[in-house]
């Protein structure tokens, strides 16, 4: 068992070993290698943040040599494609990205300090529900999942969204994460009808229902929610199993309509933190390079081919970790 050797920072010697003995340029996903000339690269050599920026590589072999030779603390590449990446000029388009960091999940069952198996698993569950919405509602394709070392990145290469601006990306985040309270009044022919989100089994109301149910089912007695006092939280936890088979109507009447409204309003603002919106709306962000080493936790950042079976503690642990002396 290697658990006590895991998640410790890598030494410079371990970094060198990783890039020389274990890392292979073929591990860099094709979505990077086929656009290497258009991207800006960034490196962190000392563990003080990626301040070596504006780096460009004409081909993968130069990137290979650089990583072998420098064995950086961390390596990044831009989500943006540029005409002149060395000046971050001539922006062409950017991947649409979503960053789910395990330590920032708004309601964590584990309550651990950093990241652990439980919250990483939770992050993967969230990623999988985001993918469902991206495909089913938004009809987007060409989606890649990357294990970042402390969570997951979703990277989209669907041409129809790559030129969209920050505002639209912000709205996509809201849609996916269920961060906006769906309207509950609909008018037709001058008459207004009340329709709760859980009575509409498609579109955004459905997404909101799913995310909200997920949040409520993961609440712990310690969870802090604006507008939700201890009494309400207790009642929610007591009655929440109704939601497991979608008995929202009964759940709502047990809680009381006013308090229900408070609850979902509060959950909506909490949902906003499911993904890091700052990452999604930043058209020039640099993201950790898949295949590179996350030296802080000694884990490989890597593309996840099958999210059903992926286990970071099996697949993303570099060899040198197993050889550490305890």
């Amino acid at each position: 068992m290697v658990s006590d050797q895991l998640l410790k920072p890598a030494t410079p010697e371990e970094r060198r070993r990783y890039y020389r003995e274990e890392w292979d340029v073929k591990d860099v996903p094709e979505f990077i290698s086929n656009s290497v000339q258009k991207r800006e690269f960034g490196f962190d050599h000392m563990g003080r943040g990626p301040n070596h920026r504006y780096k460009v590589f004409r081909n993968m072999d130069l990137l290979r040599k650089f990583l072998r030779y420098r064995a950086p603390f961390a390596a990044y590449s831009s989500v943006a494609f540029y005409e002149k990446p060395q000046r971050r000029d001539g922006w062409i388009k950017s991947e649409l990205v979503f960053d789910v960091d395990a330590k920032d999940i708004p309601i964590r069952e584990c309550g651990c300090e950093g990241v652990c198996e439980v919250c990483l698993n939770q992050a993967l569950e969230i990623i999988s529900s985001l993918i469902d919405t991206l495909k089913g509602d938004l009809g987007l394709k060409d989606i890649h999942v990357v294990y970042s070392g402390r969570g997951y990145h979703l990277r989209l290469f669907d041409e129809s969204v790559m030129t969209m601006d920050s505002d639209v990306r912000g709205q996509i985040v809201q849609y996916l994460s269920g961060a906006e309270l769906p309207r509950n009044e609909y008018a037709a022919e001058g008459v207004t009808y009340k329709l709760e989100h859980f009575t509409i089994p498609f579109g955004y109301p459905q997404v909101f229902t799913d995310r909200t149910r997920y949040a409520i089912l993961h609440l712990t007695p310690e969870t802090q929610l604006d507008e939700v006092n201890q009494k309400l939280l207790k009642d929610v936890i007591k009655n929440r199993e109704l939601l497991e088979d979608n008995q929202w109507g009964i759940f709502r009447s047990k809680i009381g309509p006013q308090r229900f409204q408070k609850l979902i309003r509060s959950i909506a603002s909490l949902n906003m933190a499911l993904v890091d919106a700052k990452v999604s709306i930043d058209l020039k962000r640099i993201l950790r390079l898949p295949s590179s080493l996350h030296s802080m936790v000694s884990m490989k950042c890597m593309e996840v081919k099958n999210i059903e079976t992926f286990d970071p503690f099996k697949e993303a642990v570099p060899k040198f970790v197993y050889e550490r002396k305890s």
Partner: peptide, 16 residues
């Protein structure tokens, strides 16, 4: 969407 004339969450979307 960018000019907020419509909101993504107000649209009924299916398969894009």
């Amino acid at each position: 969407l960018s000019s907020r004339k419509i909101k993504l969450t107000d649209l009924v979307l299916d398969q894009g």
